[in-house]
Design a protein around this nucleic acid. Structure first.
Length: 419
DNA sequence: TCTGGGGTCCTAGGACCC
DNA sequence: TCTGGGGTCCTAGGACCC
């Protein structure tokens, strides 16, 4: 009964190093959109005191002066590297859940008798390292939460093999005692404070708390955590990814927007992307929400608004969404504000095969529209860009990425050359 | 000057029903 | 004039995750 958590070390920074061996052992950081803040740091950068999420402009000078290397985010590249890592894990383990871009849970119950937990972890780490160049940590335990704890301990104790198997109670207790309550998976800032006020400071103490009490005083979520710390499985491995319940596309702008038409054009881009995603998920949506806001760091003004539009029938037609957004945005837009971010959200999904007929719409129009969208999607996959007239086509550059690396693995032009 | 993006789950409270 | 009790469903917002 064993679960492994495979966790890529400083994932984005490690990706950048794969095709740049000259960056080995040098500080590397990766920035968010608009080069806003630091979202990944190599170990060397962490040692320089660069904190996660820190605004780039605050550390830039000092970091560069000390010889640090910086990249804008290149998500097409990271996504592709992630897929490669996950495929390898999937080929080795009987059950795999891709938990995030850089983490996966593996259930290898049954096989541990043959090779042993530790050796299994070693095999995972070595194979991924050799085949992709990405370093990973492997934490192993009887439950997901304990596997997470194992992974945290690898980091904290700086275990050289980067593999830790918690397969007996003595090791488990030792790891729990050395894990502050705020580092437990599922305990955020808020719960951390509440728990320490209740005198619970490390994972071992939390594991001793009666689950029923925890449920009453906190929540059912934390109750599950307590049980998981005691080796009782409450969270299963979800090896078939559940269908999405919402799709969000949102961005902060490099330059504030003060004009409704520009805002609408930019948001139309998000709509086009979200609708593509929706169709690739084979879903239809009957609610779209639009939100706009000013910068939370701007003390002189503050406005945020969100409004939803419901269709009488579920749709996946980009033009339906564009129409809804135009109407909705006009209702929440207020002039004289400097908007810093906007986004849209699709929700209320239903399966594509299921159509609720409407009294007010001929049913054959559904099929016609789906065909059109399908053709557009296929053309766009083959790089022949079809735009909707109201989209933003280079007129306005809302995103800034000044230090982006080549798309080494997803673009023929950027393919690395070996001389 | 410059502060990310995309998700899930749970709960409280309101609307509505009988 | 007096104005019950119990249930479901939906939504907004909070908390958390990477």
């Amino acid at each position: 009964m064993s679960i492994a958590l495979v966790d890529c070390v400083s994932f984005y920074a490690s990706c950048e190093r794969v095709f740049r061996p000259d960056l080995k052992e040098r500080p590397v950081v990766v920035l968010s959109n608009n080069d806003g803040c630091v979202i990944a740091r190599s170990i060397e950068a962490k040692k320089m005191g660069i904190k996660m999420g820190v605004p780039w402009f605050k550390v830039k000078d000092r970091y560069i002066r000390k010889g640090g290397i910086v990249f804008s985010s290149n998500f097409a590249f990271y996504g592709d590297m992630s897929r490669r890592v996950m495929n390898i894990l999937d080929s080795i383990s009987p059950k795999t859940e891709v938990y995030s871009i850089d983490e996966a849970f593996l259930d290898f119950s049954g096989t541990e008798k043959n090779v042993g937990c530790f050796n299994f972890g070693l095999q995972l780490k070595n194979t991924v390292g050799r085949w992709t160049g990405i370093p990973v940590r492997v934490g192993i335990g009887p439950t997901k939460t304990l596997a997470k704890i194992a992974s945290y301990q690898i980091k904290k104790r700086n275990i050289k093999s980067r593999v830790l198997a918690l397969d007996n109670q003595k090791d488990i207790n030792q790891a729990l005692e050395a894990t502050p309550v705020g580092e437990i998976w599922g305990v955020g800032r808020r719960l951390n404070r509440k728990l320490s006020m209740a005198g619970i400071n490390n994972a071992l103490q939390l594991s001793y708390a009666p689950p029923q009490d925890i449920r009453k005083r906190f929540s059912i979520v934390l109750e599950r955590t307590v049980r998981e710390l005691n080796g009782e499985r409450c969270l299963e491995i979800e090896d078939v990814s559940p269908t999405k319940k919402q799709i969000v596309v949102s961005r902060s702008f490099a330059k504030k927007i003060t004009n409704l038409e520009v805002l609408n054009t930019v948001i139309n881009d998000y709509v086009v992307r979200a609708a593509e995603k929706l169709r690739s998920e084979k879903q239809k949506s009957s609610t779209i929400s639009v939100f706009i806001r000013t910068s939370p760091f701007d003390a002189s003004q503050s406005y945020r608004a969100i409004k939803s539009y419901s269709f009488t029938y579920p749709t996946d037609d980009t033009r339906d969404f564009l129409y809804a957004v135009r109407k909705t945005l006009a209702k929440i837009y207020k002039p004289n504000y400097r908007y810093s971010k906007a986004g849209i959200m699709l929700s209320s999904f239903s399966d594509i095969g299921y159509v609720q007929n409407s009294l007010f719409r001929e049913s054959h129009t559904y099929k016609m529209n789906s065909k059109l969208m399908k053709v557009i999607d296929e053309l766009n996959i083959n790089q022949k860009q079809i735009y909707i007239a109201s989209q933003n086509i280079g007129k306005f550059k809302p995103i800034q990425r000044n230090m982006i690396s080549p798309k080494y693995t997803t673009s023929w032009i950027d393919l690395p050359v070996v001389r």
